[in-house]
Amino acid sequence: MVEQGKILINEHVGKDIWRMELKAPWIARKARPGQFVNVRLSEHTDPLLRRPISLHGIDADNGIICFLYLVVGKGTKMMSKLENGDHLDLLGPLGNGFSTAFQGRRAVLIGGGIGSAPLYPLLEALKAQKKDVTLLYGVKDQESIVCLDLYKENQAEVIITTEDGSAGEKGFVTAPFEALLKNGGIDYVYACGPGAMLRAVEELTLQYGVDGEISTEANMGCGLGVCLSCSTPGKDGKNRKVCTDGPVFKMGELAYE
């Protein structure tokens, strides 16, 4: 479904990171944590393709959705220039989303950089089921830490790592993650972030005999499952479309080259 979302807030919240709230009742009602929206930034032909942006907030009651996005190229730069009251052409919600029903009580959510964006609606859904949640949040530096209070408001335990040591523990999320796994008691792991992080997290999770899901990304043409631009191999030899079979996959499902 294509919906014209009305921008309510579009604010700079951290290093190259923006947060946008939109009135988009149809998408807000339909969306699940881990799904994304394909955003059209020009009614002309440049930029041509829609940009897949994951849902950072889903408020069905008030008909509001939220994006947390990193300005990396032409499309996201245009997005950052939009003002309150402007409309944005939204196609979605797309993709499968996280499965929020796991056996057990305690989940670890791991977000690398802007990959933390889809974890917030997931946290809300898990908290609604009275699950215990630890968030591991890995970023480059202190300036890249955003929306921390949102997680704390939801009583998540938060562990921060920065590559330069300017906040939290110095290094990558994998060190504190392995420490948590060693302590035991973790029932499920969700991760979203750069490919190298996902691979390391997936390897550790499976090594410790825990189940989990990763949210991946790939260059997409359509977001609808027709162009096969994002088709990526699974361990069973069959390809998965990141846009419609994903972006969330079970840990151990995808093959790495």
């Binding site: 930029p47 997409m220 631009s229 994002c230 088709s231 191999p233 390809n239």
Partner: peptide, 10 residues
């Protein structure tokens, strides 16, 4: 099974 990723760029 198609070609290596990335398969598409704008």
């Amino acid at each position: 099974s198609g070609n290596l990723l990335p398969r598409c760029t704008e």
